[in-house]
Amino acid sequence: MKKILVVNGPNLNRLGVREPGIYGMQTLADLEHRMQELGRGHGVEIDCFQSNHEGAIIDRIHQADTLYEGIILNPGAFTHYSYAIRDAIASISIPVIEVHISNVHAREEFRHHSVTAPVTKGQIVGLGLYGYELAFFALINEKKGEK
């Protein structure tokens, strides 16, 4: 069975509580359940991981290289300054798609720049939790040779 890893960074464990006007009312558990159901429907195993710690995210990205066909990554605030996560992504051979729930380009200036996006397959922003589903379909279609 194909496997995809969903990685969520800092403060995403607060989904449903943190700024619901921006991030919505669904929780991280809701998102993880939604993604696992989507995966089951397409014969893909989905593993989910969340951490508020940069090193834990880096370790998980490194481990994923030999275990998964791709990563869906929401690096949270690390997006804007973590060259260490950027380098971890660059060091692996599987595709990574960066996802952001809110439209980071319509928010504060510091959120407009991603240091991680240049080493990812693509970036999806502003579509809420649906962005994770779009990233899933992009990864499974890439594996079928459709780009």
Rank of each mutant, 00 (worst) to 15 (best):
K121L: 15
M35K: 06
Q36M: 14
K2G: 04
E142S: 15
D47N: 02
I94G: 01
I92F: 10
T120Y: 06
G43H: 07
I46H: 00
K143T: 12
G126R: 04
Q50G: 08
H42M: 10
S91N: 15
L139P: 10
L12V: 05
S102V: 01
E142H: 09
V115H: 07
E69I: 05
A138Q: 14
T27V: 03
R14V: 01
N11M: 06
Y81H: 04
A77S: 15
I22M: 12
V44M: 02
E142T: 05
G128L: 05
V115T: 03
I4Q: 00
D65S: 13
V17L: 12
P95W: 12
H53Y: 15
E109Q: 03
D87R: 04
E37N: 06
K121P: 01
F137I: 11
F49Q: 02
Y81T: 11
I101L: 08
R60M: 15
V44Y: 06
H53C: 14
A88V: 12
V99H: 03
I46F: 06
R60K: 15
L12Y: 01
A135T: 03
D65I: 09
H113R: 13
K121A: 15
E108R: 01
G39L: 07
H53Q: 08
K3M: 01
K143N: 14
G41Y: 01
A29F: 10
C48L: 00
